[in-house]
Amino acid sequence: MTPNGAFTLGFVLIALGMGVPGPRGVAVLVALTLAFALIEVRGASVIALKRAAVVVLPLAVFMGVVWVGIVGESPYQIASESAGTRAAALAYVATLCGRLFFIVAVVQLVFLRFAKLTPMQIIRALALPATVKRVLVITLSLIGTLRHAVDRAHIALIAAGTLTRAPSWRNVLHSWRLVQAVWLSAVTIMVGRMRDKWPVENTIARLDDTLANDNPAWFAGDDRIWLPISLGAAVVILVADRIGEAL
């Protein structure tokens, strides 16, 4: 399976998940996602589920406190001006969290499918314009630069007595100085690279050569199995519950 195929499949699954399918549609959607997880991602699927739980669990607690604890009724009950219950609010929050869990899990499954590839290799394999690939690589490269910039600015501001190592009100008051120092540090590093380092090393031209994908086909290999299956499943999901209701 290619990254193009996996990302397209992930997009289809998420779009179907957001389409609020009925019980039959949900069953087909979950079955398709499980098949993708078991066949393509295998053991790493557990990692995807754990990561999705880490993201959604705090969100579920927060939404539970707000909607079950404070509001005490579901948005639809409020909209229809019917008597609200905490059970309905809980059911609504659970449904929403389930949908968000599904989305995060699908995103993680797609990325874990290519866990053995470096980010550069994944970007290279994607059927994207050269400019988009370039900005993605620069963004990834900047993450490391920003980490260094944060360390440097933080230590400098502690040394200057502006911030403290322990949590304090002084840190809250002067946090914008840290943001400004990090921004300045990152900008000056990038100016140095663009003005001196990259022209000498011919970095941009070499980067474009590295990112150029020799294989012009968007989809290949197992993509040709997964994508028709997912499109077929999409039709089934869209009509399953309507046929069920009609019967």
Partner: peptide
């Protein structure tokens, strides 16, 4: 339109949005 310095500023802006 998308020169290298502009691509860098896009990436910096995205990083700023994400982090804060």
């Amino acid at each position: 339109m998308f020169t290298t310095p502009r691509l860098i500023v896009i990436a910096l802006g995205a990083a700023l949005n994400c982090s804060i």
